[in-house]
Design a protein around this nucleic acid. Sequence first.
DNA 1: GGTAGGATGGGCT
DNA 2: GCCCATCCTACCC
Length: 201
Amino acid sequence: MRFGPILKRAFYDRPTVQVARDLLGKILVHGSAAGVIVETEAYLGGDDLAAHSARGLTERTRVIFGPPGHAYVYVVYGMYECLNLVVEADGKPGCVLIRALEPVAGVDLMRRRRPAARRLEDLASGPGKLTLAMGITRTLNGADVTRGGLVVRRPAVERAFETDVTPRIGVRQCADWPLRFIIRGNRFVSNGTFRAGGFVR
DNA sequence: GGTAGGATGGGCT
DNA sequence: GCCCATCCTACCC
């Protein structure tokens, strides 16, 4: 499968919410595996207490405060890794969590990396699932995603779609902020998490 | 179809 | 010592 050009640093050097929305429909590529980004979440600076950067600059959050167009990979629940793309200008925190992909290349390899996935729709339908399927680990923390083995590309053919906005999944702070973006009707988005109040998907 | 509970360890108080 | 930006299995309709 052929893709378009790699997204340049200027794409990431913009407000977090804009980048989170614009990443939908783009192609995440790592080696021979690739998938269309169908779900993202924005993590802001300032008073967004759900963001790791909210507690200030530490060894872990250093990348988030650095220049845009780099990967921020962290470990959740001691077992899984999550991929974020750093946005906003150097010195200003902001990142976009990649939450789900529609696999489009290297699918056999992705299936071998995730034997628990029964259906294609489950292969990369969550932040921990997609890093497993794509072979993305914490060793890629800080990697430049405008060049190298992990990049984001435009699709060869841009397709129109509608976007839905919902609260973010699995966060307690700022639980009702509308910062999750999904491609409307896409079958590859994560299943979400039930919370008091009844929010699902 | 659905959900409850456990695995498991890094980061920060 | 507590809190997680999660996933999978077992078990129950």
